[in-house]
Design a protein around this nucleic acid. Structure first.
Length: 634
RNA sequence: GCCGGUGUAGCUCAGUCGGUAGAGCAGCUGAUUUGUAAUCAGCAGGCCACGGGUUCGAAUCCUGUCACCGGCUCCA
């Protein structure tokens, strides 16, 4: 019989040949790397029997799909090991993930990370035995009988689409309900490791029981696994909580309260530089600045709808002379009140009002995470009031603006999401559709690839989110652009149109960096604490070789100060080597060593954090160079 | 909030079987005046997260609270 390969060439096979035979026929290397196959675009095992005319594409372990098959198979091996070590365990699900795999279990006794080596050892036995993965297709009834003692599997079985056959995979003595495909045998699992254990709700719902999730990872080779584990270690080194402490940027204090960061001088200075840049960029982009108070009467939050739709995230009201006041969780109502303080003409729109607005939100204790998830934070917020005909153009210009802002900080990779109407929401379907359509159109015009996040919008409108990743690869939402037809209605926000009639503007809520706290957290990890020159809290440290050089060192410092370069003079009685080490540990971009040679010639010896000893240069040349680099943010 | 883990000096961490607290770095003092990642010596520093219990005796065992860490759920 003849089958077709992806390059449209044909391949002759004997009747009853399998996908593996195709791989072997092409070459032993391919057969070795093969983990599954695609036959007529359907993924199958290598043991799949082919028919005349099939189109066959071999999936190798080097492809993302193949790696997924390998990891999914690793999850089965994990489950097999756990079933042996924890008899009576109930099986949840065990998929491959971006970085590895996991399997959820309901265990008869709790497991902790200390138990992982034992499970790993059991897995190694199963791998050594090279047990074959055997697929079986069976009727619902037979499957139900087989998994009689597995309530979660029965639940999944009951929800299989009717057209899909129930299938199981068996290796060794372990059988799992599974769609497949799998690697031919467990012996192919050359490099795996269990990394952590955590709780996870069955099917991700708080209403369901909590299962024990065991995370692991697997790679085609031991070398790749080791590289991955090395990367994890490197990522831990970039952790903003660690660097925040080491570099004296901020801390979070028990007695002040969880999720309420305190900014130390150096951290506050970095923030100031970011804020200055942010304000200038906004003024350049035709925004105006506004400011509002941190608390407001409860009535305001009732009008806005926050009281009804957002209360679980708001702090309890406080009593002020018999009136209830609430700490603001959002800035929008305040900005609306400014808008409403007078009548507006259609000629004024769009109005763009920006504020670094601090908000407080109740976050459940378990979700707090360094600077990335806190209870008090400053949003780089703005609200745009525009006419319906301006909506799409405004969204597009916000997208262009945010790409510029993020690019300045060296972020050029992010995940883009379009979030649609959630269950708990307000407003007409028509408005939701209009708003969602405008966001989508703008994304397409900007040429951004995006994924739709169904039901993830805010209660008053759909939104575009940009997420950037932290050191451990976790995605954090920073940028958000939200269209809102609702608040203008609730507050009866209007403008007078060309026709002398009263019209309703549309609001766009947007935060480009998201919150300064979260953004700084991401930024610290992004730069591994070594801020570029324009952001560094201390840009230059001056290291006199001996006390007799202090005078000249002071002159150099004064000259740099004149150019507003942030300079520190190290007058400690340490050796030059120690002073350099201290500056290196603090990740200061430039160190200037000053001794007899420099003093005599009016020079400075330059050492950079990134590039080591750069030799000596005339002071004025360096000053000009640094000033230019700060100016251009390079 | 939920599951699992952790909490000892400013920081990083030891602390055995329940017998009363230890190191390195940082800090302070003194000596050294140093040329591209740690000069030497001395001193000081602790309500062992907090509360209750067991015990002759608790950093250690039990228990409650708080915080932190890894996840889940939820979010900028």
């Amino acid at each position: 019989m003849k089958i077709t390969l992806p390059d449209n060439s044909h391949f002759d096979l004997t009747e009853g040949a399998t996908a593996l035979d195709v791989a072997a026929g092409v070459g032993p290397r391919l057969a070795g790397a093969a983990v599954a196959a695609k036959v007529n675009d359907i993924t199958v095992d290598l043991s799949y029997h082919l028919d005349e005319g099939d189109r066959v594409d071999i999936i190798t372990v080097d492809s993302p799909e193949g790696l997924g098959v390998l990891r999914h198979s690793a999850a089965h091996v994990l489950a097999a090991a756990v079933m042996q070590l924890y008899p009576g365990a109930k099986l949840g699900i065990g998929p491959a993930t971006r970085d590895g795999f996991y399997y959820d279990f309901q265990l008869p006794r709790p497991a902790s990370e200390a138990d992982l080596p034992a499970i790993e050892a059991k897995m190694a036995e199963i791998v050594k035995a090279a047990a074959r993965f055997q697929r079986r297709e069976l009727s619902r009834e037979d499957a139900a009988r087989e998994f009689a003692g597995q309530p979660f599997k029965l639940e999944l079985l009951g929800e299989l689409p009717p057209e899909e056959p129930a299938s199981t995979y068996t290796n060794d003595e372990f059988t799992d309900l599974c769609r497949g495909p799998h690697i031919p045998d467990t012996g192919r699992l050359k490099a795996f490791k269990l990394v952590s254990v955590a709780g996870a709700y069955w099917r991700g719902s708080e209403k369901n029981p909590m299962l024990t999730r065991i995370y692991g990872t697997a790679f085609p080779t031991r070398k790749e696994l080791e590289q991955y584990l090395l990367n994890l270690k490197e990522a831990e080194r970039r952790d903003h909580r660690l660097l925040g402490k080491q570099l004296d940027l901020f801390h979070i204090d028990d007695e002040v309260g969880a999720g309420l960061p305190l900014w130390h001088p150096k951290g506050a200075l970095v923030r100031k530089v970011i804020e200055d840049f942010w304000r200038d960029a906004h003024l350049d982009n035709d925004y105006e600045m506004v400011m509002i108070p941190h608390i407001a009467s409860a009535d305001l939050w009732k009008t806005s709808g926050h009281w009804d739709f957002y209360r679980e995230n708001m702090y309890s009201p406080m009593d002020i002379e018999g009136q209830e006041y609430i700490v603001k969780p959002m800035n929008c109502p305040g900005h609306i009140k400014i808008y409403k303080s007078r009548i507006h003409s259609y000629r004024e729109l769009p109005i763009r009002w920006a504020e670094l607005g601090t908000v407080y939100r109740y976050e459940r204790s378990g979700v707090l995470h360094g600077l990335l998830r806190v209870r008090g934070f400053t949003q780089d917020d703005a609200h745009i009031f525009c006419r319906p005909d301006q909506l799409e153009e405004e969204i597009l210009s916000v997208i262009r603006f945010v790409l510029f802002m993020l690019g300045t900080f060296g972020f050029d990779q992010y995940d883009v999401y379009l979030s649609t109407r959630p269950e708990k929401s307000v407003g007409s379907d028509e408005n939701w559709e209009k708003a969602t359509g405008a966001l989508k159109a703008a994304l397409e015009k900007a040429g951004l690839k995006f994924a739709v996040d169904p039901g993830e919008g805010v209660f008053y409108g759909p939104k575009i989110d940009l997420k950037i990743r932290d050191a451990l690869g976790r995605a954090w939402q920073c940028t958000t652009i939200q269209v809102d037809f609702n608040l203008p209605e609730r507050f009866d926000v209007t403008y007078v149109g060309e026709d002398n009639e009263v019209h309703r503007p549309i609001m766009i809520h947007r935060a480009l960096l998201g919150s300064l706290e979260r953004f700084m957290g991401c930024l610290i990890e992004h730069y591994a604490g070594a801020f570029p020159l324009w952001l560094a809290p201390v840009q230059v440290v001056i290291l006199p070789v001996a006390d007799r050089h202090l005078d000249y060192a002071g002159q150099v410092a004064a000259r740099l100060n004149q150019e507003r370069i942030r300079v520190q003079l190290d007058y400690s009685k340490e050796s030059v080597g120690k002073k350099i080490r201290n500056a290196e540990v603090d990740k200061v971009p430039y160190m200037l060593v000053i001794g007899d040679r420099e003093e005599d010639a009016g020079m400075v010896s330059v050492r950079s954090y990134a590039g080591g000893d750069l030799g000596s240069r005339p002071l004025e040349e360096l000053v000009a160079d640094l000033a230019r680099r700060v100016e251009t943010k390079t």
